[in-house]
Structures are given as structure tokens and as C-alpha cells.
């Protein structure tokens, strides 16, 4: 009976752990995506400045 209780607890913990691990991967994926997006935004805003320089000199 004791084994039974342990076994039940273990399977519940495993399911909880799997949900946590999935969330951890979600976090990692989101962070990578954000990082890429930030570097894209910076590069673009930098390019825009260069492009615009001859046309729109600072006032």
C-alpha cells in the first residue's frame, strides 16, 4: 500500500515536472526571439540614420 502511494505521488510529480520543463523551454525560446528582434531593430535604426544623413542633416 505504501508503494502504491509513492507510485501515485511520483506520477503526479512527473506530470508537474513536465509542465515546468515545457515552460522553461518556452522562456528560452522567447528570450532568443526577443534578442534577435532587438538586434534587428537596432540595426535598422542605425541603417536609417546612415541613409537619412545626407538627406536630412541634423537641424
Amino acid at each position: 500500500f505504501l508503494e502504491d502511494v509513492k507510485c501515485q505521488a511520483k506520477s503526479e510529480l512527473q506530470a508537474c515536472e513536465s509542465r515546468y520543463q515545457a515552460q522553461l523551454r518556452v522562456t528560452q525560446t522567447l528570450q532568443t526571439e526577443l534578442l534577435q528582434l532587438y538586434s534587428r531593430v537596432e540595426m535598422e535604426s542605425c541603417n536609417n540614420k546612415l541613409d537619412n544623413q545626407p538627406l536630412c542633416p541634423p537641424q
Binding site: C7, Q8, S11, E12, A15, C16, S18, R19, A22, Q23, V26
Partner: peptide, 20 residues
């Protein structure tokens, strides 16, 4: 899991994992 009385709890975990 094999224990039927854990099905509701574990089923809930599965749903949250899927939705997240």
C-alpha cells in the same frame, strides 16, 4: 497515470502545458 484519482490533477497539468 495509472491512478484514476490522479487523472483530474494530471489532466489539468497537461492542458496548461498545451495552452502555454
Amino acid at each position: 497515470p495509472p491512478h484514476s484519482d490522479s487523472h483530474a490533477l494530471v489532466g489539468g497539468y497537461r492542458r496548461e502545458q498545451y495552452e502555454n
